[in-house]
Every structure is written in structure tokens, then in C-alpha cells.
Computed example of a mutant assay.
Amino acid sequence: MIKVGILGATGYAGIEVVRLLTAHPEAEIVRVVSQSFVGQKISDVYQNLKGICDLCCTALDVDDIAGSCDLVFTALPHGASKTVIPSLYEKGLKIVDLSGDFRYNDPVVYEKWYGEPHSAPEVLKESVYGLCEIHRDEIKTHRLIGNPGCYTTCSIMGLAPLAAAKIVDTKNLIIDAKSGVTGAGRSASLPNIFCEVNESLKAYKVATHRHTSEIEQELSILSGEDIVLSFTPHLVPMQRGIFATCYANLTKKMTTGEVLDIYKEFYKSEEFVRIYDEGSLPEIKHVAGSNYVGIGVVVDPRLNRAVVVSCIDNLIKGAAGQAVQNMNLICGIDEGTGLRAAGMYL
């Protein structure tokens, strides 16, 4: 059994890690850390866990975590992880970090997008970007995984086959993405309360969203050239889901069927990726509550442009599910363990 601790267990991503691991046959939750609910049972904070996980929330104690856990998930706010993880890493723990602190290959890029220097650049060098379908072999050999963001997972996976095949104009990539409100986390915030979100749709952080940098990093690696793209996120009145519509101008005449063949070949061995047949496109309902990615493609022959639709559940494949997938990889067990449930259509 893998003995697991979850830091930041009472946030939306953290509690999804808890929920998934309660049904995982090879993991045992031994610590749930939450500064806001110290001394309270996690099943009192989230009563859906009553009788399933009744552990008490504790304050962070690095020595206790190191002495009791084999692996930790750090579902802490951006900026907090980089102050905590060096001590955990030094003690030999396996770590899957759900914040943005260990997702970058270059600390200068982190500083540019997060507005502060990275306080642990040497530890950052030891991390690997945890997009399992792209970096599986690297993940297996590392102890520190920077679990990707939700927008990034959806967008990168939507465009990865085109970037790798080098058949698109990389100077004119556009991603129009929508997120459910849980993507903003559990903390109270006026723009995210019910009356502000319901019956509305809004763009935010236009041309400045941090996830842009992750998407550019990974697509640049796949294409072999530096990519700068346009990414616009939107908030929609739903709880779960990321829906990204990606636009890429093709560099040669191709049909929808030909582009879909590239996608099917690229993802042919990927259990959690569903490539939709021509004439069909994914919807949030098809993936909500699951670790699956839905991808569909249409080529607009008038513009010779590929329009790619990519969908995930932001809390599962975009956070907790992918984190568990990473845990499975770095612990040497079947990658899909605990993650094969179908989504919640209703």
C-alpha cells in the first residue's frame, strides 16, 4: 500500500484527490493537512465522506509527513508550494504538486508570469511536467511532478498532434477556452459568487492568463520551435468542465479525415483520450466526473483551418485525476488504477 498525505486537502482539487483515493486499491490516505480546519474531521467539512474517510485534519508538520507518508499531494495555493516542497523533497518523499510552482523548465518564465522569483530553482530543476500522455517516460523516473493546470491540459492535448506533426502555422494559434467556476478554487471571491456568475458569460485575464505560458512551453517542445499564441479564458455558469476551441491554420491542404488520422495515430495507445469520429464533437457532459479527454476536429476548407474541440473535467483530468495518474506512474503501478470510472452525464 502507498501511504499518502494530502496537503491542502479541503480545497476543491485536494478534496477530489481524497475522494478518488478512498476508492484506490493500492493507496491509503494517512494524513490530510488543512490549516483552516485543524482538528476537524474531513468528513465534517465534506459530509459526503462520512464513514468513508473520517481522518482529522492536521497542521503541516514536515517531519510527521516524512515519517508517515511515501507520497504527498500538495494542493496548496500558487506560491505556497515552493516554500514547502524543498523540505519534503529533501526527505526523500515522492511529490505530486497541483500548484503552478513546479511546472516550468525555466525559472525566468515562472518569474515573468507569476511576478516573483522562484525561491527554489534548484528543486525546480528536479521536477518534470506531469502531462502523462506527453511525458510518461520522464514521469516514471522522477520524484517531483508539476501537475499541469486544467486549461493547459485541455489545450495542450487538443493541439499536441498538430504541433508534433508540424502541419500548422505556429505563428497564428488561437485558443478560446471556457471553465466551470470550480476552476477558481473554494475561497470566497465576489466575481465567482452565484449571482455574479449565473446567467452570464465573461472573459477574464485576456492575454495575461498564466496558463498561456504552460501551453507555449509544451507546444514549443513538441513543435521544435518557440511558440507564442493567443489564449482567452472565459467563466461560464457551470460547476465542472473545461471546453477549449482551438484554431490552427494548416500549412497544406488537408481534409477532416486526414487530420483525424493524425490524432488517432498520436493518441492510439492512450486509454484516457477519446478521439471523436468525423461529424461528431465532444461535450462537457461526456467527460464531467471522469479522467477522460474528448477531442474532435473539423477542417474548414474555405480557410484551410483546423478547428479542434477539446473537453475535460477541470477537477479530475485537469487536477486530481491527473495527479493520481501521476502517482500511479511514479509508484510503478497500472496507470489507470482508480481512474476508470465513466463520467457523470447528468
Rank of each mutant, 00 (worst) to 15 (best):
I333N: 11
A244N: 03
D261C: 01
S87Y: 02
I221F: 12
L60A: 09
R274M: 03
V197R: 09
A164I: 06
S99Y: 06
G14E: 07
G180H: 06
Q239Y: 12
G92N: 15
V309I: 13
G39S: 03
A163R: 05
A80R: 07
L60S: 08
Y46E: 00
I193N: 14
K202T: 11
T337S: 07
D61R: 04
A9F: 08
I215E: 05
R274T: 12
K125V: 13
Y345Q: 09
G51A: 10
Y46A: 00
V168K: 06
V45D: 00
A120T: 11
G183E: 02
D277E: 02
K50H: 04
T256S: 01
L329I: 06
T251K: 13
A66V: 04
V72F: 05
V206N: 09
T10I: 07
V206H: 12
I221S: 13
Y292E: 07
K252R: 15
S43H: 01
A164F: 09
L190M: 14
Q40L: 09
S87T: 06
C132H: 02
N105L: 14
E214F: 07
V17Y: 04
H78F: 08
Y151T: 12
C311T: 15
P86K: 03
S290A: 11
R143Y: 13
Y89I: 07
Y110C: 00
G5W: 06
H142W: 04
I221K: 15
R19E: 10
S230R: 15
T170Y: 07
S155W: 03
V38E: 05
C154H: 08
L235Q: 05
A207K: 15
Q322D: 07
T153L: 15
C56P: 06
V307T: 08
Y263E: 09
L235K: 05
R340L: 09
I333G: 07
V228R: 13
L281I: 15
I174Y: 11
C311N: 15
L303P: 04
V236R: 12
L201W: 08
D70L: 06
C195G: 14
D63V: 08
T245L: 11
N48E: 02
V293W: 10
L21Q: 11
M1R: 02
N192Y: 02
K317A: 15
E214S: 12
E214L: 14
K264V: 10
I156K: 08
V4E: 03
I316Y: 08
V324N: 04
Y46G: 00
Q239I: 14
T232K: 14
G51V: 05
I284E: 04
V45F: 02
G289M: 13
E278S: 02
K41C: 08
L60V: 10
P161I: 15
I52W: 00
N291D: 11
T212R: 03
H24E: 02
V293H: 11
Y104V: 00
I42G: 03
I134T: 00
H24M: 00
N172H: 13
G289Y: 02
T152H: 13
E122G: 10
I65L: 14
S280E: 09
